[in-house]
């Protein structure tokens, strides 16, 4: 099946010599939520801007449902809706007019019924005649989403969609994104909130210094690079890890109250039982045991550190 987005060998160097992207190759499949993670200046927005036609491509190609975004730009761009990072809106326009403008700009005839439905879904209906400058930041963000969805795109780019948005609105946006995915919309989002990617993404791409370090299904990535820890709360604190336990990958908490055993849950004989036996045979008593799975954030920090 033709991917929704196919990026091949994309490179970008700005006029001041800064290389924003270095040989990016990436496919995004139809109907998936793809999260692009990376630190500030990693190249996330440049990549999105190049796919959407805002920034010129130096080398490489971008295809949207098989249509080249330079030579067949009309078809390619018609599939895409973009919610940019900045809240760039026409302050003096009303919500209704600005959303209707976006739809027609993308070559669609006006459809008041659809715009009404869209504004209602995004809880903007009662503000339809309000000038955008009178809206709160969260509402402006929703207007941006409404503008991006106004022409019924099959692919939605969300560049830092929940930056500066309160927790309640963020969760409501997540619900809306999931709803869109259920409707078959392919979603590509960039975010600083790893929690957001962990919560929503099917697949993760990590970009750093213009290079795509990894693209992997979220579950596979967390299984591959994620670690699990068994934390044993001791009866009596230790000053060092006993020599008799040196066969295990152990750490000791600063206060000496906890022994931390790191293991791979995917392996059958991963040493958990042996470790528990060793504690018993060494007469190391404990009053509690807990496990901790490394988060996507831990994996992200590890990947960025390695790169």
């Amino acid at each position: 099946m033709t991917p929704a987005i196919s990026v091949q060998g994309l490179k970008k160097t700005y006029a001041d010599g800064y290389q924003a992207l270095d040989d990016i190759t990436l496919d995004v499949q139809r109907g998936e939520i793809f999260a692009l993670l990376g630190p500030n200046g990693a190249g996330k927005t440049t990549l999105i801007s190049m796919i959407c036609g805002i920034v010129k491509i130096d080398t490489g190609s971008v295809k949207v449902f098989g249509h080249d975004n330079v030579h067949d730009y009309r078809q390619a761009r018609s599939y895409i809706g973009l919610v940019p990072q900045e809240l760039t809106t026409d302050a003096f326009e009303t919500v209704w007019k600005t959303v209707s403008f976006s739809r027609e700009l993308f070559g669609k005839s006006s459809n008041p019924a659809y715009i009404e439905e869209l504004l209602k879904k995004l809880s903007l209906w009662d503000k339809k005649d309000a000038q955008i400058r009178t809206l709160s930041g969260g509402m402006k963000r929703r207007v941006m989403i409404a503008k991006a969805l106004s022409h019924e795109p099959e692919i939605l780019f969300l560049d830092e969609p929940t930056a500066g948005v309160d927790v309640e609105l963020r969760k409501s946006m997540w619900a809306q994104v999931r709803q869109l995915r259920e409707m078959g919309v392919t979603i590509i989002l960039t975010t600083h909130y790893i929690e957001e990617a962990e919560e929503m993404a099917d697949r993760i791409g990590v970009i750093n210094k213009g290079q795509l370090i990894v693209t992997e299904e979220k579950k596979v990535l967390m299984k591959k690079l994620g670690k699990k820890q068994l934390i044993v709360h001791l009866h009596h604190p230790l000053s060092v890890v006993p020599e008799s336990l040196s066969a295990f990958e152990l750490g000791l908490s600063k206060d000496g109250q906890c022994l931390v055993f790191t293991y791979d849950p995917a392996i059958q004989n991963n040493g958990v039982l042996d470790f528990m036996d060793a504690l018993k045979s060494n007469a190391i008593g404990c009053h509690d045991i807990e496990t901790h799975q490394s988060s996507l954030e831990d994996i992200f920090v590890q990947l960025i550190g390695e790169s």
């Binding site: 959407c52 805002i54 009309r74 809106t89 026409d90 976006s102």
Partner: peptide
């Protein structure tokens, strides 16, 4: 100046 040009540049319009 305001940045809303992004919409024109990303639209299927010559």
């Amino acid at each position: 100046f305001t940045g809303t040009i992004y919409e024109i540049l990303s639209a299927p319009i010559s």
